[in-house]
Design a protein around this nucleic acid. Sequence first.
DNA 1: AGAGGCCGTAACGCAGTCTTCATGATCCGC
DNA 2: GCGGATCATGAAGACTGCGTTACGGCCTCT
Lengths: 222, 222
Amino acid sequence: MRVLVAEDDRGLRETLSRGLRESGYTVDAVPDGQAAVEYLRTYDYEVVVLDWRMPQVSGLEVLQWMRRDARANPVLMLTARDTPRDRVTGLDEGADDYLVKPFDFAELLARLRALQRRPRTAQPPRLAVGDVIYDPAAQEVRIGSQRPALTATERGILEMLMRRSPAVVDRRSIAQSVWANDADALGSNTIDVHMARLRSKLAGGRVRIESVRAVGYRILGQ
Amino acid sequence: MRVLVAEDDRGLRETLSRGLRESGYTVDAVPDGQAAVEYLRTYDYEVVVLDWRMPQVSGLEVLQWMRRDARANPVLMLTARDTPRDRVTGLDEGADDYLVKPFDFAELLARLRALQRRPRTAQPPRLAVGDVIYDPAAQEVRIGSQRPALTATERGILEMLMRRSPAVVDRRSIAQSVWANDADALGSNTIDVHMARLRSKLAGGRVRIESVRAVGYRILGQ
DNA sequence: AGAGGCCGTAACGCAGTCTTCATGATCCGC
DNA sequence: GCGGATCATGAAGACTGCGTTACGGCCTCT
């Protein structure tokens, strides 16, 4: 298991390196964000441990770079900050987990194990298909610079389609994701109508919603 | 997005339900582990929020049942306990995340979003014969780089043939796999007609559909 | 109470799909 | 080789699912 540790405090960095090696990991440790990016560019790691606060390039910036670059490696952030607000920021930027200093080493190991089990994050916090961007946190949709006013139902459907894109989403999945009782939505033409409304609101964007007869729908960029 | 919440404290349960619904989730809330298992058996959820301490069946036991039952749904554990030791236990049992009460609601939302980000099911099982590939999950057929437009019935028949390939599939099996009432399909030449169309659409691929007189059909790679 | 927005249902037309029918080809036992 | 059975294929009508529009009920905000 290869792990990259980015931590500017020398003492902590060495403690982490030693401890992780004793636990069977292969560790590369770097003292700042700049070096972390270099290493990430060059080597491949299963898990990345990033200190939030580092000189020059912070852990958050490294994380943002990773996600922009479509790197899906699980990331565990270390930080001294402990306000809920900070945690929200970190998680929404695509961190997979979060640990507050000072921390218990056994817990770090457990969280690393959990991250390894978890399938890669694979997706940045924002969904994008064509020029349509959906931000699940803000529940906001953008088409280029436009901001179409979608209703809650339409956003729910759109989110489902975008998460699975370019695969086909069957009607049952759509129904389940939006309605508690999928039966009535399946029995009527409710989905079709919402789909029509969604299509008209997305018209002008560089996407299209294809219908796959007898199965469901899918959204594709153009 | 469907979420199951299992929490015995009524006040917290209702707060969670209301808050999550306002954030766009479809929520089922249950007061104990027993009910949680029932619901998990019956419905499908994207994320499960489990209180650790519950009467009768605890959240940890629900989690253990899920993992024994090979349920891969992301699980977020809620708990009042806050020793590193407990966290280690929870994470090692397969919880994907962990939140200590009292918690900030925005953080709960952020962690749920992080959990949802996990990619769709590992890798979809695929059927391949010759250069024809069928993905049952996406219901998509490819011949090399081509994507022939098959109808639902044709896909159903093709899937059956490919699953059994290179064995012969008798007409009864084909009928049963596609039609609720296999009788009428067997009495007519409907199957033959579909088979002809399927052949023509697969022409160009390195496969052929052989007919086995008085028995059925089979598909072979070339 | 009224206005407006959102949602679900109904109705209808259309396009794509399925089944049936007709006809010809092929196979198999005798 | 002959006859019956089985299969292949083309065309036509029946059917189904989808797109669309319109409308009524519900909720929220004022």
